[in-house]
Amino acid sequence: MSERQPIPFRGGGFAPAPRRVLPWLVFAVLIALWQAASNTGLLPPLFMPSPLSVVKALVALWQDGTLVGHVTASLGRIVPGWLIGTAAGLAVGLAMGIFSAARAAGIPIVSALFPIPKIALLPLLILWFGIGEPSKIATIALGVFFPTTISAYTACDSVPRNLIRMGQSFGLPARDIVAKILLPGAMPGILAGFRISASVALLLVVAAEMIGAQQGIGAFVLTAGSLMQTDQLLAGVVMLSLLGLLIGWGLGMVERAMLKWR
């Protein structure tokens, strides 16, 4: 009997494990580096204000009500625009998911119009609806409509066919197959589409406000830039980031509530 040797272990790594401190540390280090670079004069304050001055600007603008007014104006465009676009997109997308004729009719049009950057249509929409709110809301609704349509009908396609055959084999009426099998099965895909359409809405509201608005975060950021108030400009950008995070968090709550079964 020769000497016993342990078998060398080769199975480590390649398995992402959660780290609690590291993510925050990276964040903190990056901001500290940025602040240090500002303090030493490496970053000229006019072109890249320090994190501290951005935070100061953010707090001051929030307290004097300036930001509240702009955020309210932006939300006043995002919310109706997203709701209109989502309602129309779900109606068309689900029809395309359920009916062959709607799909045959819809796919070419949707595919042709989807790639158009919707902001390019804003001048036309301004001619139709005027320079006020409706043209901006319409731009957002259009931008939201197409990805919602596409995610709704692809979500219908992703429902396993065998579940639909099961429903048929148990004699479920067509409306029950839609309500009890197709729609719940498509829900994860539809909700995932909401994340995309929400980011589209945020992007379009900023773009539309930069083209023609007095109020709104996009207008605020543009004005701050032309006045070289870069701390205020970045405060507006941080506000947009917070808004995006907030929307994502809200959608996450909706997903967790509706998709408990996963």
Binding site: P160, L172, D176, K180, M187, W261
Partner: peptide
């Protein structure tokens, strides 16, 4: 439902509980 299947892949609705899956064909 005179002709009723049992499927190889079970074909259960993952968003319904056991009870609700069994009740599916009775509901209407």
């Amino acid at each position: 439902n005179p002709f009723t299947y049992v499927f190889q892949d079970f074909a259960l609705l993952p968003w319904r509980t056991v009870e609700a899956n069994v009740a599916l064909a009775l509901e209407h």
